[in-house]
Design a protein around this nucleic acid. Sequence first.
DNA 1: AATGATGATGAGAATCTTTTTCATTGCAAG
DNA 2: CTTGCAATGAAAAAGATTCTCATCATCATT
Lengths: 140, 140
Amino acid sequence: MDNQDIRKAGLKVTLPRIKILELLENNTQRHVSAEDVYKMLLDNGEEIGLATVYRVLTQFEAAGLVTRHNFEGGHAVFELDRGGHHDHMVCVVCGKVEEFIDTTIEKRQREIAKEHGFEMVDHSLIIYGHCGNPKCKVGY
Amino acid sequence: MDNQDIRKAGLKVTLPRIKILELLENNTQRHVSAEDVYKMLLDNGEEIGLATVYRVLTQFEAAGLVTRHNFEGGHAVFELDRGGHHDHMVCVVCGKVEEFIDTTIEKRQREIAKEHGFEMVDHSLIIYGHCGNPKCKVGY
DNA sequence: AATGATGATGAGAATCTTTTTCATTGCAAG
DNA sequence: CTTGCAATGAAAAAGATTCTCATCATCATT
């Protein structure tokens, strides 16, 4: 019941919001920029303005439906929150993104924050490296 | 011998580069945006263009003299590389930045990368939370 | 089902950050 | 001291995101 998620967020159930949420749910690549979303909607024949895409994604983020990541490169990417939190591993050559979750690190982070007098509310961990693809290996 | 660092990077020793490196070394706040650097130079009476600041910071980054961080908010911040790697903790209210390093996490990251077939070359860990300042606490 | 208040949308303008262009200047090797 | 080539400043351009505003759609209430 996606529409309920929108409603629960205190937002009206409108066509742009439904379409954007659908796209995030069904799209193969989990990490998309606002521009990506906009273009995909266009390809699907939806007449949704870029400004609306930005607005909706920001609202979804505030509602906890999606997460915004600031990867390298100046533009943000969004990802549907499927309940489970996870971190990212990005290949510096091909850009491939893998997700992972590690309880050791998760736990340690909370401890470190506390040691510094912080109360952790969120975190961002991105590992950059060369992925398994031979073409992405060092010295190729 | 800062000028040697510039030279070693294969760059000519010019006034803008010297001034920017000096500023990064002597400035109290370690994390500065290109705009910050530009304005501080202006305040110091230096006539250095914003484009040059961007160029030089990017060159310094390539040379390993500074590190670029993509914190939330759309603009990058730069930090002088004082040899030691470290991660960041950012207060979501006042923006205060604290640095930390944790061997448990550092080690675990390498292991995780390897488990996924990645060879880690870098990483970015940012913990967001409420800092010790009472005004930044939840429910203030 | 009609109504109306309020929120949402689209288009384009505006803003902000960063990069590029290009004519001019200055470092540094000989 | 000359000279090539890199570096610079100013302004324009590009890219990402937000804002403005007139119009339109949703939804709680009739």
